[in-house]
Design a binder for these strands. Structure first.
Lengths: 375, 375
DNA sequence: GAAATAGTGTCTGTTAGACATTATTTC
DNA sequence: GAAATAATGTCTAACAGACACTATTTC
């Protein structure tokens, strides 16, 4: 096959599509400006010649583009799916104790086939005149009403048959939403949206040797629990107190579980890192895999890039910050060491918590400079 | 908008396409098995009900899928582009000195519009019955003849207008090929393929405050140099000696440069991390951005996950390994510290280098167990 | 005063950086 | 013996883990 990109030579390019079908296919002005960022933050600069060079058929670029035909080979739909994380705390029975905080993810119950009744990540199609990032931001806004958050592209999933209807790839994103009142939007599906508490734990670990190579498999259990989902908008909209706590109602808990295997294969020279859904109960499509990859990315970024600060409200105590770290990493941290490391990332304020049943704690805010330098 | 995925409700779904147009759109059997990995390593497990549930229109899943219509909204083409890295050394004038090693990337000169005459990453379209990973592996094989390598998905690029012809997204991959003889394939474009030495250096750094936020911009200079490209297949196929060195011919050097800006914006809560091509001379499309992201990912993985071992041949000296680290990270490392850290990753052999003009050096091989545990 | 959290001090073992020293081969 | 690299030793500063201890508020 040829190395040419997007000329479709190997997939047939002669049969034209009805021009009607192409009305969304933008052909921007490219006289002197190549791949623009369009809309967002400035255009990319480019020095290539302004279209005077002629190709093998003697055409200038302008002539080439005017005659260009998209061809009728198959194209996939591309969706943007969102793994929206937050950390929130439950109300504690004992008025003196601090609430336990847990990592949560937003899911939506499917009302139609396929995976009818299963829970899925919010998402939607990327439209012709937007980037995948913009589609993700749009979905997030529509789903949670939140606009200014941390958003990161995770991975593009393209397994054959991952959507039984048609060829659909999905570009997965992770979003971090802080733990103040989250107003899950009153879209036409808001009654089917719910926050799920999430655990993702290593269940087992196996190493296998085979002819000069090693296969290392790790099994993780992904468990998602929602309290009071299905009770409609009220649940999702109730939101949290200013301290990010909410009461839970154990009556109608929903529990979804999946086993995700991560398999590292290393034979001579080759190396693959595959995720596989070994068991899945209640999650739609390959979303268990997306959530698993999102958590692993989140943990990595929290440890390396202090990403947890994105989950904090304006003012917070260092213990709250530590709890967020602990909820995400799913392990306990030592207080003294944690405070040493957190110290350069935050700034003292003169405010303190009050009436907490114990010694008040100083409130901090994110430091303006010292974090977020993602290497 | 609705949260429904892939039903196209917001983009119109009533107008059917000619069935001819859909012959590539697989509709796998989903009676009891959801999103399969198809082909590769096992099917994903799934417990959802086997299609007896009925949706709002009273249809079972089977009925739904039979009636399902892909709709005629616009779909993008999706390409897989490859940033193929290797490290190779030039012949040194002084017989005693060790050759300098440099990081290289494979580029292909475009023979058609757009970007006629510019250099591009090898790549090709993802086909209907393969994953993006498979498309990337296929391209790599076609381009270099190499099959068993390290391959990692990097990022999906979807800027509007990034391809002037039509709507094309690109899923970028990074591949690591070891430094033994690389046989760049005799495809119809092989005469236009060449390895480019690569440097990627921080040029400047600026911080700017604006209303409660900080913008941190880093400018990088990407410089690609090829010696003797354009001399046809011979150049690309000549390959390297067993020690990964080759002679260079300074006569017809090609130099491409680009300035890539990475901009970290942090306003209250929000946070973005954008790459922008500020200047571009000789690279097609947004490929300067892809190469920049690939190097940053590579550096991160080399530091954290010892990925450089993938670039080594069967037997190598610790100094060679250190040189590969240094070429990738673009900084010098201390020998003693390096050897301490490398020691658990490699295994001694009883072989030594010979006739090198100085003390022989022990040869090592990759350890079977102790590396590649990508966290 | 009991219960709880807030906040600090300090010991210790590990590790990265820096530099120095010795060893060995080829020509 | 000169030139080069190979290989190891050791000092130090920084840092993470571990644990103990003091402080302060609410009820």
């Amino acid at each position: 096959m040829t190395q040419e990109r997007a000329e479709g030579s190997s997939l047939g390019k002669e049969n034209g599509l009805d021009p009607e079908k192409r009305n969304g296919a933008e052909k921007p002005d490219h006289s002197g400006n190549g791949s623009g960022k369009s809309g967002r933050s400035g255009e990319d600069a480019d020095k290539r010649s302004p279209g005077t060079a002629r190709d093998a058929d003697g055409r200038t670029e302008e002539e080439f583009l005017a005659a260009y035909d998209v061809g009728d080979y198959e194209r996939p739909s591309v969706a943007a799916d969102m793994v929206i994380f937050t950390v929130a705390g439950d109300k504690e029975a004992n008025y003196r104790k601090l609430p336990k905080r847990s990592l949560r993810v937003l899911l939506i119950r499917r009302g139609g086939h396929p995976y009818l009744g299963s829970w899925a990540l919010p998402g939607g199609f990327v439209r012709p005149n937007e980037t995948a990032d913009q589609a993700a931001a749009r979905e997030l806004r529509e789903e949670t009403g939140v606009d200014r958050v941390y958003l990161e592209q995770l991975h593009t999933f393209s397994d054959v048959g991952r959507d039984p209807r048609t060829w659909v790839m999905s570009c997965a994103y992770m979003a971090l939403v802080d733990s103040r009142g989250l107003d899950v939007r009153a879209g036409d599906d808001a009654d089917r949206a719910a926050w799920f508490e999430l655990t993702y734990r290593l269940q087992g670990d196996s190493r296998e040797r085979l002819g000069g190579g090693v296969v290392h498999t790790r099994r993780y259990e992904l468990r998602l629990t929602s309290f009071g989902a299905g009770s409609g908008e009220a649940e999702a909209r109730r939101g949290n107190g200013a301290d990010g706590t909410e009461s839970t109602d154990e009556a109608d808990a929903i529990e979804l579980t999946a086993i995700v295997e991560r398999r590292l294969t290393r034979t001579n020279g080759a190396s693959t890192d595959e995720y596989r859904i070994a068991d899945n109960d209640g999650l739609a499509f390959d979303h268990a895999k997306m959530i698993a990859m999102a958590i692993e990315r989140l943990r990595m970024r929290v440890e390396r890039d202090e990403l947890a600060l994105h989950l904090m409200p304006e003012r917070f105590t260092l213990t709250q910050l530590q709890q967020v770290y602990e909820a995400i990493l799913d392990r306990e941290l030592l207080k003294a060491a944690f405070r040493r490391k957190a110290e350069p990332l935050v700034e003292k304020t003169d405010e303190y918590t009050e009436h907490a049943g114990h010694r008040p704690s100083r409130l901090y805010r994110r430091s303006r400079e010292e974090w977020g330098d993602y290497r």
